[in-house]
Design a protein around this nucleic acid. Sequence first.
DNA 1: CAGTGGATGCTCT
DNA 2: GAGCATCCACTGT
Length: 204
Amino acid sequence: MVGPLGAEFFARPARDVAPELIGCLLAYGGVAGTIVEVERYEQWDAASHSFRGPRARARTMFGPPGRLYVYRSYGVHWCVNVVCDAVGVGSAVLIRAVAPVSGVAMMESRRRTAVRRDLCRGPGRLTQAFDITGILDGAPLARDAASDGVVVTAPEQGPGPVVRSRRIGISRDADRLWRYSLGGSPWVSGPRPTPAGEPVAAAA
DNA sequence: CAGTGGATGCTCT
DNA sequence: GAGCATCCACTGT
């Protein structure tokens, strides 16, 4: 699949969508980066905001797929997900890190740092560099690159080996290997998966 | 390098 | 009042 991704791409289980997002281009407001790290969250997953059902904060997770779920983290940062699967499932993929591709000067200005490696490494840093905030919660992904909205575009070629590892910063259901990243990438956040990590193809 | 604590807002107990 | 899907500044090796 090549080109901007829409609702039909995300209307599948997050276990299928998440690894395919690695290597895709995330673009918004003149800045762009290649997705190198995501995590998936499901309703029957104690670490997920959808765990307790469609309550106020996580209601977007239970809406149509292909929309952004943006929430505030630790009262300070924003984090951005894309809703997956069918309406009512409560499934989403958190975008945790991208490799900067364009608009780097804008990213540096927003982040107030010139440390290239830290511009978009981590979910809070990424949203700051992209100026993604809570006003985008519930917004559908845009279908064309010229749009004002957030666009996710599939690459023509695969990015390289996708590995899976434990999710970052959670305590409940922490053993699930639901974090997907580009093997060996320096743009990945947190403790990076050990040497090669676990190949995504090896696990169903 | 590792570890600690503060900032700050919202949800749950 | 506790606990976060975090980040940064600071400390001590």
